[in-house]
């Protein structure tokens, strides 16, 4: 048992967490005459370590995940979901949301494709909520930074929000508030091509390159902001505004995060340094969920496909769910890290 836990610790700290890299960078900076205990040296160390770490993990992850995703094109996901009813359909939709690949500009065509095929609105929304909030990549990155327990609970609660959110939208009778042109659209059964192993590798490589290009700016900005928080912002500020002292910290973090648009990989370094400075675990995780799940650009797109009532219900349910998850994590923090 001890060997297993030692091996896991090594895996978590050195392979996923790449602590050795941090030391190496610290030594290199010291050799260059920069004291990493000082503000500038500290910022540089955090920035270099975090960017290198995230890019390395990201590359390995996206390649592997894209390979898995090539088995779940949206047409197949839609077919699978069509066979299930009730809560099971919502649960499956949330799970498939984590492995079905699409870029954010596809979320509306996907929504329309699912709905016109007769999938209930609630099932489609379970899919649309879980997809940006929880993906396999974020699971591993969260493990690297917050540890395995936090990562697993984050993923589970993300799925719960997606399942309950979709179910609730369904129960509220939101089906009526889908724009008519979608409900009246003919259902086109499109087939997805069968892929060889080589096709999948090519696809995974393509995804890797295009994703890196797309998320790179968010990572640099995220890590930059994280580095400044980590080394410049006084601990007491963070503690007062986002720590135990403020009962509304989770609400504040969620509301600030909702209109923002960033990739989950860009928000993780910000969350990491806020946590380090004494913000509550639930507060930073709620912030991450809010940033990734809801954003102004995606809401503006969604507005074209659904009527205001449904849009409002969607925003309210997601925000509420995220806030609850935040409070849960703050409460459970002592058991998790």
């Amino acid at each position: 048992m001890e060997t297993i836990s030692a091996a896991w610790l090594f895996f978590q700290n050195q392979i996923l967490g790449m602590k050795w890299l941090n030391e190496l960078i610290g030594r290199a900076l010291a050799a260059a005459g920069l004291d990493t205990g000082e503000t500038l040296g500290g910022i540089l160390q955090f920035f270099l370590y975090d960017t290198v770490k995230i890019f390395v993990l990201l590359s390995v992850l996206i390649f592997g995940i894209s390979y898995i995703q090539s088995y779940f094109p949206p047409e197949r996901t839609r077919r699978i979901l069509g066979r299930f009813r009730g809560l099971w359909a919502n649960i499956l939709a949330a799970l498939l949301g984590t492995v079905t690949p699409f870029c954010s500009c596809s979320s509306i065509p996907l929504f329309m494709g699912f709905t016109s095929a007769g999938l209930p609105v609630g099932v489609t929304f379970s899919f649309l909520i879980s997809s940006p909030m929880v993906d396999l990549g974020s699971l591993v990155l969260l493990m690297s930074i917050f540890g395995a327990r936090v990562a697993v609970v984050y993923v589970v609660l993300g799925l719960v929000v997606a399942v309950l959110g979709g179910t609730l939208l369904d129960k509220l009778g939101m089906e009526r508030y889908v724009e008519d042109f979608i409900r009246n659209a003919p259902h086109i059964q499109s087939d997805s091509a069968t892929l060889t192993r080589r096709d999948r590798v090519v696809y995974a490589k393509e995804q890797l390159l295009s994703t890196i290009r797309k998320v790179a700016p968010y990572i640099f900005i995220g890590v930059g902001v994280g580095a400044v928080i980590h080394n410049v912002i006084p601990q007491t500020w963070v503690e007062t505004i986002l720590g135990d002292g403020n009962p509304l910290a989770v609400v504040l973090a969620t509301l600030v995060g909702v209109p923002m648009y960033a990739d989950i990989f860009g928000t993780i370094p910000v969350a990491e340094s806020l946590l380090f400075k004494g913000a509550g675990l639930g507060t930073v995780l709620a912030f991450m969920m809010a940033v990734t799940t809801l954003s102004l650009p995606s809401l503006i797109m969604l507005k074209k496909a659904v009527k205001p009532r449904l849009l409002a219900a969607f925003i309210a349910i997601c925000t509420g769910g995220i806030i609850l998850v935040g409070y849960f994590f703050n409460f459970a923090q002592q058991f998790l890290i």
Partner: peptide, 12 residues
């Protein structure tokens, strides 16, 4: 969007 849904396009 209307044209898209009529063609059965789900991912762009």
């Amino acid at each position: 969007l209307v044209e898209m849904v009529q063609m059965g396009i789900m991912t762009v």
